[in-house]
Structures are given as C-alpha cells and as structure tokens.
Computed example of a mutant assay.
Amino acid sequence: MAATATVIHSARLLTGHEEIADAWVLLSDGIITARGSGSGWRDALAAVPGGGAEPAIDVVDAAGLTLLPGFIDMHCHGAAGVAYDDPDQAEIERALALHRSHGTTRSVLSLVTAPVDALVTQVAHIAELTGQGLGVLGSHLEGPFLADEFRGAHDPTMLCSADAASIDRLVAAGAGTLRQVTLAPELDGGMAAIERFVAAGVIVAVGHTATDYAGARAAFAAGASVLTHAFNGMRGIHHRAPGPVVAAMAEPQVTLELINDGVHVHPDVVAMAFAGAPGRVALITDAMAATGCSDGPYLLGSLEVDVLDGVARLAGGGSIAGSTLTLDRALLHAVQGCGVPEQQAVAALTSVPARALGLADRFGDLAVGYAADAVLVDVDFTVISVWADGARAV
C-alpha cells in the first residue's frame, strides 16, 4: 500500500524568500497541506485520516538536510540520450526522469529549429503530454525565427521570419500549452510576431538575435518578457553599445535566463547578472540529449554535435550546442562558484521561473496550497530525495 501522505520534519527549509530552522511540511493530495516548525508535525499527522496506520503516512526525518521547492527548468531540450522532439513518450519520460533525479520537478520542453510543419507536430505531441502527471508545463520553441548571425547550434537552412499563418498554426497546435517562443525581433515581422504571440498567451523571449540595446528595449516594450540564455546568442556588453543584456536589466518585468555551467558564462559575469537584475535571473539547463551520458557524438535537431569533457559543441569544434547541465549543479555552481547568496540562487530555479511562466501561484514555493514538489539536499546541494505532486520520485 502506497503512502497517502508524507511529512518531512526537522529540516532546514529554504526558499527564495525565507529560511526556517527545524521545519516540517505535510504533503497530501498532491499539495502542501500544512507546515510549521518544531514538533508540531506530530499533531499534524494525527489530524490526517489514517494517520496512525503505517504505511499510510511516510515520515521522513530530514535532520541535517535542507528542504527546497521543486526546481523548474524553463529551457531544456532533453537528457539520457533523448531529445524532446522525439515522438516516443517512453523516451521523453526517460529524459524527464534523469532531470527529476537532479531535483527538476517541472519542465518546459524546448524544441530546436525545424520546419514549421515538423514543429506543429512536435508542439501538438507535447500538448498531449502536458497535464499527464509528468511535470511537463508545455513547450518552448527555440527557433526557427532566429538571426543567422547568432544562430549558434541551429540549422541555418531552416531559419525564417515569423508570419501570421505560421504563428497561428503553432499556437493552435499547442492548444494552450505553447508556453514560450524565442525569436529575433529585428527579423521581418519580428515586432508584429511578438504582439501576435503575446496576444495568444505565449511568452516571448528575445534570443539568438543581432538586435542592439534600443531594439531589445523596443521588443520588451512590445511584450517580450524573457531574455533567452543571457550573454549567449547575442551581442555582448560594450561601454558604448550596451546590447540586449543591459536592456533586459533595465526592464523590471524581464527575466534573464542563465546557463550556469561554468562554460557558457564566466562566474564573475553570473554574479554581475544577479546584481544587475535582482530577483529576475532564472537558472536554466539548456540541456541536450547527452546530459547524463558519456562523451561522444550526438544530434541536436538536424546538426551533429560532439561532446567532450561534458561540453557539447557542433561537430568540428564549432559553437557550443546546448549543455549537459542539471539544475542541482547550476545551483551548486551559483553558490560555491559565483558567490551568489543561497536564497537568491534557490529563487533562480524555483520562484523566478515560476513567475516568468505565470505560474507563481502554484509552483516555486513551499507554502500551503502549493504543488507538493520538494527537494531534499545535503550541505553541497547533492539531491537526497525528490517529491513531485506529493509522490516520492527519488
């Protein structure tokens, strides 16, 4: 008989806005139903129907450990040898399980550049997976509406400008689950595309773009609210040409994604981003199929990729092609490698992405009424246990 509820007690509770010693939380019916500190968990247990019968209640002693909200990855392409454009649900579940073992309880499935017809099919497939209890929040289109100059690991033969018909087809295929689209606003029809996607309830991210500071500010004014993997796939910061990163820092409604693997962005620049956009940095993985696997040859969309020492690049030593990062490593590197305060770092993979995705009322916190997503870690942020919707996953 599976446990109907779980109480985790004697933990250090840490979220993006609070820290509580000797804390406890009660997970039941897929949500957090009670919490407190000290020995109050015993009284809470007694109030649960069947609370005195084992194994109806799973009691977890978390002394010496830290309890965090479940991690949210708003930009991830796969893992375990699987890309999220794979139509096989079992394969996608295998990739999700790999990330879940590292603390990610909610994922937006990212798709790389492909023909619009193919993307329509892929978005529709992800729509079917959303809401099935897999932790899938929807899809993210990273392409094909990208600038060739800053395409990175995207097939140049498939890049195009956004037109109204393509936008409408993609939105319709998502049936409300197309969560985010990355585009270059300077392309023909780019600003109109921002407005059309936003009107359809899709979050627009500026990325893989040749736009400058003024162009990025205009895109954000038109409704874009995310900067895709800040510093990568765009112009850098120059003292006379600040570029899209500084433009994003200047806009209080904009979230800056960061791939914090020690390769994509220098640790001091990561710290600068946290200081320049307090409470608005979202740590992402941008992980591709090689995540959790050995070095060697892989595919990212239609392009060949070589992974060496965990770093993915286009075959032949080309552009960085996503990452092999997991969010627990991103958190550890933020705190120990970049000097980011723990609470800010935790927010960057919990409450910040939840807010950016418009889901801050359900995810990213350990408050009563929130989804029962939690991660228990040790002092080095090594994942000990994971709960998703109240079920123990690790």
Rank of each mutant, 00 (worst) to 15 (best):
303 L>D: 05
53 A>P: 00
79 A>V: 05
221 A>F: 00
147 A>G: 04
346 V>T: 02
282 A>M: 09
311 V>D: 12
226 V>P: 03
91 E>M: 13
33 T>A: 14
55 P>T: 14
2 A>D: 15
378 D>Y: 06
313 R>I: 12
234 M>F: 02
239 H>D: 03
272 M>A: 15
300 L>H: 02
194 I>A: 01
67 L>P: 00
188 D>T: 05
376 L>M: 08
365 D>G: 11
351 S>E: 11
16 G>W: 10
202 V>A: 05
25 V>D: 09
10 S>V: 07
325 L>E: 00
294 S>Q: 10
127 A>G: 03
162 A>H: 07
319 S>K: 12
178 L>Y: 01
238 H>I: 07
269 V>T: 13
79 A>Y: 00
17 H>R: 09
299 L>V: 04
393 A>G: 01
370 Y>P: 04
365 D>L: 03
325 L>C: 08
334 A>Q: 14
207 G>R: 15
64 G>N: 05
157 T>D: 14
44 A>L: 07
77 H>E: 13
165 A>K: 12
63 A>E: 12
171 V>D: 04
243 G>R: 12
56 A>F: 13
7 V>W: 06
242 P>E: 13
128 E>N: 14
19 E>L: 10
359 L>V: 05
282 A>R: 04
209 T>C: 14
325 L>Y: 02
341 P>Y: 04
178 L>M: 09
225 S>P: 01
310 G>N: 10
219 A>N: 10
368 V>F: 03
167 I>W: 11
280 R>G: 00
